[in-house]
Design a protein around this nucleic acid. Structure first.
Lengths: 214, 214
DNA sequence: GCATGTGAAATAATTCACAGCA
DNA sequence: TGCTGTGAATTATTTCACATGC
């Protein structure tokens, strides 16, 4: 991919949002969309949309906007989702893990879950969303053997760091962590934390500073 | 709260991370922590930690760092979590909803789930994590009746916008949305989207742009 | 000596605003 | 006319670096 000068991190994240909105628009039969429309749908500004896209090329048409079909082909290419699959391991088959497994969106975007692990012997052997839950003991070896590139951590906080270590030992290059702890990983592994609790807490800040009470 | 000049949004979000790390440190018997230690644990810089805290006051001691106990009292006060409960409604009792219900962290921070709704008649009446699942039909009225302030959306994408509308009609002031759609809400309602899929997709960008293949 | 708190500088991200194209 | 693409300006956030206090 071209990958021009300095591309804001925030902009990259928004590309997936554009992609999702484009699918919705296409489903409604639209064939062009303006930056203003996209912006309205996603609570952004039109300049933001244009700027984000302009980092990667000139995809729009003056006076008309962006051709939806074209953009739907281009964005996955930019994101590195085109013509390839990412091999994913999910660790933890509790409620959150199951929710992730059940989510169709991953597969649609090229993320294929190649292994599901759980420490709990009662869960091992079960089949969740077509995936057999495996013994977590040899996680690293299995991950390496199946050439898995991405790990998703959906285990309790106390277990997360150890799981992280094993995933790294197995050779993953990226980890998505849902456990409420900050994990340490070597610099060559891209680590992203998604913290369900932190989101709620910062909402509290805005609520309580906005108005006194209710 | 003082709420000085311009407080970066990003800094507010980090306050919860500090809080979590402080609990961990306290559990290990530590009584002081330096900005450098906090930074290392959370993959930040020490300047960032000091700056974030300095927006709200001077809590550290030169040469020693921050007193953990003190900071643990102060941060909840800043976040508006002290001496109060936030009343929360959870909509959707599928896997994700159940995971959120089961998460002890919410209650510890003062978020009390006062209602769980589901559209599916088979799920209505069930008890999940001590909460009886209720009929989603009267959502708005129940939310208003129980004076619920925060709504959490954990339903499929297609249903999310309608749920959002009802929560707003019921008078919530903040919504945490886990459905993979961008929702529209009036400006007086603070809306935050947490997108599980988007996180994975942006990881893909970094992976594929970093090295050619594997 | 060690670590805070904070101006000042640097960098990142957003927004303005407008020339230019369809 | 309507909308893109993009310099320039603006605003937000991070980092530097150091005077100051324990």
């Amino acid at each position: 991919m071209p990958r021009h000068p300095r591309i804001p991190d925030a902009g990259v994240t928004r590309l997936s949002l554009y992609l999702r909105e484009l699918s919705r628009l296409e489903g409604e039969g639209a064939s062009f969309v303006s930056s203003a429309e996209l912006a309205r749908a996603l609570t952004l500004t039109s300049a933001q949309v244009r700027r984000d896209l302009s980092y990667f090329g000139q995809f729009g048409t003056s006076g008309r906007g962006y051709e939806i079909r074209r953009l739907k082909r281009i964005i996955p290419r930019i994101l590195g989702l085109e013509g390839r699959m990412w091999r994913v391991a999910l660790v933890g088959s509790g409620n959150l893990g199951s929710a992730l497994l059940a989510y169709r969106g991953f597969r649609e975007r090229g993320f294929v879950i190649k292994a599901v692990f759980d420490k709990d012997p009662r869960k091992v052997g079960r089949v969740v969303a077509g995936q057999r839950v495996e013994e977590a003991g040899w996680l690293a070896d299995v991950v390496r053997g199946r050439r898995i590139q991405i790990g998703i951590i959906a285990v309790p906080a106390v277990a997360a760091q150890e799981v992280c270590r094993r995933l790294v030992r197995g050779g993953v290059r990226a980890i998505l962590n849902f456990a409420p702890v900050s994990l340490a990983a070597p610099p060559h592994v891209k680590l992203r934390n998604v913290d369900l609790s932190v989101e709620l807490e910062s909402l509290s800040y805005y609520l309580s500073s906005l108005n006194a009470n209710r």
